[in-house]
Amino acid sequence: MTVDLFFQYLFAGVTYGSIYAIVAIGFNIIYNSTGIINFAQGEFVMLGGMISISLLQFMPLPLAIIVAVLATMLVGALVEILFIRWLERPSVMQMIIITIGVSILLREVALHIWGESIRSLPYFYGNEITTFSLGSVHISPQVLWVIAACGFMVCGLSLFFKFTPTGREMRACSVNRTAAILCGINTRNMVTFSFMLSAGIGAMAGCVMSPITYTQYDCGTGLAIKGFTVAILGGLGNSMAAVAAGLLLGIIEAFSVSVVPLAFQDAIAITILLIILFIKPHGLFGSSEAARLRDF
């Protein structure tokens, strides 16, 4: 393999990896505050893309993205308030079924509003064939946007969780909900807030990746599966780990193409996932002590 080809694969891998990572971060936020996996996470990504594409007719791109993110956060809050908030001590099973139900609901609503055709935002910089060349390696500027958005989110989130009162309260909920209640934290609001936050992150991801991957009413499912895989691989609840695991999976997928036909790409990725989970059941960066305190 030539050096050029190596870097071409590497950048392809980093592109996939960043996309998976952003989706995985959304899973982690809700998991941290509620201990559940929100299977509607992929639909938040789809909604972010779709809403911003529709808004683009009325306003400039940056504003359309901001409004789309806010609108999706509102949807996230509504989902929590309508379907989850009023449950007394919901079981893990109930929550899984509810979130799967919500994901189907959102998908059908999207089908009715936007139809079945594919849509996309324009490239943020340049157009479909603009590339930066490093030697003979070509990179689309949108890839840099995705990587930047991913980095921005990870930094923003860790600052938010470390230094803001709300962030600390959310972390308190995730560590020990009963103790958090005793400290006077309104845990229910924290759960609503975590849904909003992860919806917002999903929407943001949906906007930056839309020019590359396109947005269709059912594009959330595939992304959610990959994002979920990455979240598990990194260790549930750990956003930094999700980024590392996302990049790892993306790069493995990209390089696997060079040795086996593309059709086996997912098989290779899942095999590696299984091997890692056999060796480290709590993910690459998860600890078994922390996992023992969880019910899921």
């Binding site: 071409q8 392809a12 996309i19 590359i212 060079s258 593309l262």
Partner: peptide, 20 residues
């Protein structure tokens, strides 16, 4: 000859392979 998933979101790795 290559087959990709119907939900494929990016095929740049495949293109790199063909181009080589």
């Amino acid at each position: 000859e290559e087959t990709y998933d119907k939900k494929a979101t990016d095929l740049s790795a495949l293109v790199a392979k063909l181009k080589s």
